[in-house]
């Protein structure tokens, strides 16, 4: 039993190893990109459109509305990053119904890479939104004393992102593998269904947390005015 698909190595040369994590990631990338390209090849702008186009538009507009609900004013700007995060994690979880498949997100290397990308993307979006100095000042908020804690927060929340997703995905795959060896017929199906749900929830949580971090970075220096309560009549 493998704890991580990293251990499923197809080819290795020195420290370069072609493991299941990378291969399944490529497969998912191919599915996402080819599927998207196939559907978007025949997009129509009229009122009549195909159900696949309709599905894609629903997915894209829903992601954008969620990004907007988090507090990011220009969702187009963040759609590529956050939308890809969500779709990749979600498709990786949904594909667990296929036999012989192991989700790349069950690898701590993948979740760490995704968390690192969030760790890099947050300051990039923050700097592009309020400038370098404005963003750096956000680490001194509310007082300079909070600088180390803010830095620790940055690192810890990145680690939390990585470990949370890895733990959930890995545990789901592990439980199914264990149950398959004990009660091969009924319970693995139920746990697979539960794993699908868990995977979707994790994709949502990962994306929303990334969006919240980006939102915090892009507006941290702006004073948030709390409306004073209306005087009693």
């Amino acid at each position: 039993m493998r704890l991580t698909p990293d251990a499923w190595i197809f080819w290795q040369y020195g420290f370069i190893s072609l493991n299941a994590t990378i291969v399944f990631t490529w497969v998912l990338m191919a599915v996402l990109v080819l599927g998207g390209a196939l559907i978007t090849r025949r997009l129509t702008t009229s009122h009549e459109r195909s159900r696949w186009q309709n599905l894609l538009e629903i997915v894209v507009t829903t992601i954008m509305s969620q990004i907007k609900d988090v507090g990011l004013k220009n969702p187009h700007h963040y759609l590529a990053f956050l939308g890809t995060l969500f779709l990749f994690v979600a498709i990786a979880a949904l594909a667990t119904v296929l036999p012989g498949y192991e989700p790349p997100t069950a690898s701590l290397s993948t979740t760490a890479a995704l968390a690192l990308s969030v760790l890099v993307a947050v300051p990039l979006f923050g700097i592009s939104s309020q400038g370098l100095m404005g963003y750096l000042k956000s680490y001194l908020q509310p007082t300079p004393i909070m600088l180390p804690f803010n830095l620790i927060s940055e690192v810890s929340r990145t680690m939390a992102l990585a470990v949370r997703l890895f733990g959930n995905m890995m545990s789901g795959a592990m439980i199914i593998a264990i149950l398959l060896s004990i009660t091969p017929f009924f319970f693995p199906i139920v746990m697979t269904l539960l794993g699908l749900l868990t995977g979707m929830v994790q994709a949502y949580i990962f994306t929303i947390l990334a969006a919240v971090y980006i939102a915090a970075a892009t507006r941290s220096s702006k004073a948030v005015k709390v409306p004073s309560p209306a005087p009693a009549a």
Partner: peptide, 27 residues
């Protein structure tokens, strides 16, 4: 060791490529 840093780097690169491809062909 649960983290393979080569895989981390490869996945990071994969993700960046995926973001670009998705932006180009989907979003």
């Amino acid at each position: 060791m649960l983290i393979d840093w080569f895989t981390v780097g490869a996945q990071l690169l994969n993700f960046i490529v995926l973001v670009w491809l998705m932006k180009r062909f989907l979003y």
